[in-house]
Structures are given as structure tokens and as C-alpha cells.
Design a protein around this nucleic acid. Sequence first.
DNA 1: CGGGTAGTAGACCGGTCAGTTAAATTTGGG
DNA 2: CCCAAATTTAACTGACCGGTCTACTACCCG
Lengths: 244, 244
Amino acid sequence: MQNDPRFDSDIPQPDTHLCHQQSGMSISRVDFTDRSTIIPVMNTSVDTKQRIIDSAQELIYARSYTDVGVQEICNRAGVKKGSFYHFFPSKRDLTLAVLDQLEQFFRDSVQDNAFSSDRSPLERIDRLIELIYEFQRQTREDSGQILGCPFGNLAGEMSTQDEQIRQRVMHIFRGIEARIAESLEDAIATGELADINVQASAEAIFAYIEGIVLIAKARNDPEVIRKLGKAVRGLMVPATMVKE
Amino acid sequence: MQNDPRFDSDIPQPDTHLCHQQSGMSISRVDFTDRSTIIPVMNTSVDTKQRIIDSAQELIYARSYTDVGVQEICNRAGVKKGSFYHFFPSKRDLTLAVLDQLEQFFRDSVQDNAFSSDRSPLERIDRLIELIYEFQRQTREDSGQILGCPFGNLAGEMSTQDEQIRQRVMHIFRGIEARIAESLEDAIATGELADINVQASAEAIFAYIEGIVLIAKARNDPEVIRKLGKAVRGLMVPATMVKE
DNA sequence: CGGGTAGTAGACCGGTCAGTTAAATTTGGG
DNA sequence: CCCAAATTTAACTGACCGGTCTACTACCCG
């Protein structure tokens, strides 16, 4: 273990241990002028493929798909480029793997928390926005910047560039909309909500969330999410044009 | 004119004439596999600086800031790189000029149309969404793809990357919100709308628009804007917590 | 012990990146 | 017509791009 060649390579060793599942989204404070030292290299104890995914996830989320190179992902993961292309046929395929992991992370950390049944159906949507706010506030505190929605970022950058990535993101969007729709169904069932167009309302609510997160990123201010999030209940789409 | 060296260079000549002010946003049909021939080179009759701005605007809007290189912008404009750096100190400064032009374009073609006083204040907001829908539908028809909001795209990609660009986009956002806020004020004045929190409502409406345009881009379907746009009137934020 | 295989290393491919430099050319005013 | 300023040209820098290739190591199974 001591003579592991990785330990005396020229790659700086990690000063933080980032578990890919929980804290894999955190990065260090950003310095616009020197991006090479923004994010420390990772711990090398996790298996190589996972380290590559984690490295890519953090770098691409903090910057963008196009701005981050394969070489930089490898450096951060403490892996040589040959190994990278042993595990992934292309940068795009790596990104699809990153999207899988991010979707899982979002389900485990955000959705399962927000949509737990210890809240009334409509409170779950408020809770979803609160959790997103808290997440963005935390990354802003850690890195000095709001990084926005990792799916929305890729949708905006890559939808015109890579059809597979676009479809993967679209599919993730559908899944989130479906969870919101479930809550709306429940709200109608419990009488918390009048009869509405569930599908259209869920899509509108999700679009609004993506919008406020993007505005928050543009202003670099997480409070936008909290403030504008309060208006989300207005987005219920009536089932008919008849007003009661 | 015949012996203009540009006419026997290896740069393919334009087959369309793109005026920078009106039709400068249109591009040809996209082919994911061969991006070098997506967009034809421009007419060389306009002055160089303007051609560079137009070329950059179209390329960056269709793809992304990072993905488009200075060389490609120059090729499309029929200009050598040295000329580029005669007019612009950097790629970023060119992008700021592009943002200026896009803001002007949006004001002239969208805002001034939507917010004209021949409609009731609230209808102006519906009209704004209609115009955005129509614009996105048109680019989808022309290029095969929804390109989304040029400001939102740059906000998502560049907010963490370039502070000047982030602030420029944020300022443009503020301007649009202000126009929406004006309409809401008018709506209250004419009695079309009950008393609401104008500023918060304007911000919520704008965030929602950005959100639905982003979702439309992710689905590559302009109809999303039309469909979800109908729910925008629900986003008025009550002035107080008191319900009447 | 032999041999197959998963994983790793590092050089290498053609091409592009943003930006620089210096010289040549065009332009417009006196 | 001449000169100077504005503009354009083309070669160039050093770094980096995504991806390929071959050789080598480490480990597992028989």
C-alpha cells in the first residue's frame, strides 16, 4: 500500500474525504481566476469507476459539461486517461452515468424526504421547495456560489448538443413531475385541494421550480427560492373553465 | 469588389442574407454529427465588428458559450482572428456586446409588441408569453430545435464561470421584470387586478416564464410554452396574508 | 505454476483553444 | 498626393481537446 504508485505521483493528495453518495455534491470555495485549485483531488480508496463518476459530477455541476475536460476529471479522480476509457467509451457516456447517480441522489435525499407521508399532500410540495432552497443555500455557503439545478444546467447547455443527454434529462424531469402529480392526487383525495388538472399543474409547478432556481443562480442568491417559492400554490390549473 | 480576397478564400460563401437586427436569430437545420456545416457563413457587406457580433450571437445561442470558439466565430463572419482581437479584447467582451444586442432585440421585437397599450394590462402578459412561444416555435421550425432563452442559457452556463456575464444577465432579467411589474401596476390601477405584491408577482411570473422555456427546450417542444403559459395568472402574490 | 483478464500507465493522434505579434494593406483627411 | 490612423492578414504561442494505442501489472482460477 505504501508503494502504491498513486501515492508518490505528482497529483496532489486529497485533504477531504468525499463520499460519493452523501457529500459528493460539495465543493470548495470558488476563485474565478484560478480554477485549477478550486476543488481538491479525491480520496483514492473508492474504486476507480466510482471516483471518476464522482469527480465528473462535481466538476460538471460546478462549471459545465463543455468546460470540464476528461483530463481534468481524471486528475481530480487520481486516475490516468487510459483507465477512464477502460470504464467509459466516451465523455458523454460518463455524463449519462453521472445523471443516473444524480437522479438517485435526488430521489434519496430530496424526494423521499419531501414526499414522506407525515405531511399533508400540499405541504409536501412546500417541503420540496424548502429542501431545494436548503441545498442551494448550503452549496452557496460552501463554494461561494449557487450552482443551480444539475439537471436544468445540463438541459440548458446540452439539449441542442447531445440528443441522448437531452432525453435522459427529460426523463428525469418526467419522474419529478410524476411525484408532484402524486401529491396533487393525494391532495384532491383528502379534500385538501379542489379538482384540478393534475398533470398540467404538476408540470407547471415543476417548471416554476426550475425557473426560480435558475433566477437564484443568476442572482447568486438562494433566498430567491424561498421568497418566490411561496407563490407555487397559485399554479394549480383548474380542471374546467368553470369557476365556483 | 470582384477581386476582394474574401471571395476566393476557402471560406464557403453565404447562401442567406442575415440582417443583424431582425433575422439575426435564425439558423439552419441542425445536424448533431457535423456541426461545421450547420450554419452558413454570413454576408460580408456589413461592417466587420457587426458581423462578428452577429456570428457570435447565432453560434452561442444555438450551442453554448464554451462550445463555440473564437476561430469558428471568425470563420462564420468571414474575418481573421487578428481582426477579431482588434475589435474585442476578449471572448467575454464580445459576449457582453452580444448581450447588449440581444437585449435590444428583445426590447424591440418582443417587449414593445407585448406591452403596447392597445391591450389590457393583464393581456399584455399573456401576449408576452405568446410572442415567446411564437419565437421558439419558429426557431424550432427553422433549425429543428428549440434553443431556449438566450439569456437563461447564458445564466445557467456562465453564472458560476464569469462574474461580469452573470451580472449583465441579471441586469437584463431585472429589466424584463420591471416591464412585467409595470403591467401589474396598470392592472391594479384599472381595477383589472386586486391589490397584490407587484414586485414579488413580477419576479414570480418571470421565473415561471424562464422555467417553461427551459422545460420546452428539454422536451424540444414549443407547445409546452403555450400549454403551461396559461397558468401564469395564478402567480399573483397577495399583498397581505389576509384573505378576502 | 501457467495463463487469461481486468485494470492501469503513459505516450501519442490530429485538431482546437484563447490570445499575441508584427507586418501589410486600406482608408480618409489635409 | 501623402501620411497617419484604422483595419486586416497570417503566422505563431503554449496549452489543451477527446480519444486511441500498446505495453505492463496484478490478480484470479485451474
